[in-house]
Structures are given as C-alpha cells and as structure tokens.
C-alpha cells in the first residue's frame, strides 16, 4: 500500500517550493495541504502542487487547488499545478470530469510547473 503523504521540497529554481502530494488524499488529508498552502502564501513563496505522484484526490482536494489559485492570484504569489500525462489516471479523470483543467494553472510535468511558478503566475 502506497503511503499517503505530502512532502515539502525546496527547489533550486528561484526558491520555488513543491508540495508533492503522494498517494490518496481526501476530506481527511485536505486540511494538511491547506495548512501548507496557507504558510507558503503567508511567506509569499512561489509554489507548485505536484499531483504527479497522487493516486486519488476527491473534491475536498479540488477545493484546495481552487482556493490556492484564488489566493495566489490575490497575493501575487507564483502558483502552478503539475499533473501527470497518464490519460488513464484517476486524478486526471476527476479534474477532467469537473472541468477544472482549463481553470487551474495545470502543467504536464513538475519541471514545467516549477518554471511557470517563478513567473509570478502559473497560467500557461
């Protein structure tokens, strides 16, 4: 069973922080992601939420993503989402079904998301 956790990794690219969301995340763990997002926005640190290693997310996590985008825009903090290119992935499926991929600053790989977050706005 894959461990469900959130790793915080500081990159060499303009101090961008990557929140690596690993395993399954839902209404139980979403508050932990919010906590990390709040701290990064508070410190005005550009950040990426990397969903590449996530195997499941529910609407609670989608809410965290939308709220992160809204607050990052308001505060002028760089923010992007990395999503794997695996078309059969459950995480991509949820984002597609809810129509959120065009709404969020989604990038197909972590490196591209990190680069986008340095620009102060993650949208492509």
């Amino acid at each position: 069973m894959q461990e469900n956790r959130i790793e915080v990794e500081r990159t060499e690219t303009d101090g961008v922080v990557v929140l690596s969301v690993q395993g399954e995340h839902d209404v139980y763990t979403a508050p932990s992601i919010t906590e990390q997002v709040d701290a990064l926005i508070g410190e005005r640190v550009p950040f990426v939420i990397d969903l590449t290693p996530a195997t499941f997310v529910d609407s609670s996590v989608l809410r965290v993503l939308l709220e992160a985008r809204r607050r990052a825009d308001e505060e002028g903090v760089g923010f992007a989402v990395a999503l794997g290119q695996d078309d059969s992935g459950a995480v991509r499926r949820v984002l597609e079904v809810t129509g959120l991929i065009p709404v969020l600053p989604v990038h197909p790989a972590r490196d591209a998301a990190v680069q986008a977050a340095t620009s102060g706005h993650g949208s492509e």
């Binding site: 209404v27 609407s59 939308l66 809810t98």
Partner: peptide, 16 residues
C-alpha cells in the same frame, strides 16, 4: 467554510 467541498460531489456522482 473550510470544510465545504464546492458542491462538486453531486455532479461527480451524476457524471461517474
């Protein structure tokens, strides 16, 4: 507010 799930739950159930 922080517990709300955007009302996305029902559309997900309906779609899936």
């Amino acid at each position: 507010v922080e517990e709300r799930t955007l009302g996305l739950g029902l559309p997900l159930i309906a779609t899936l």
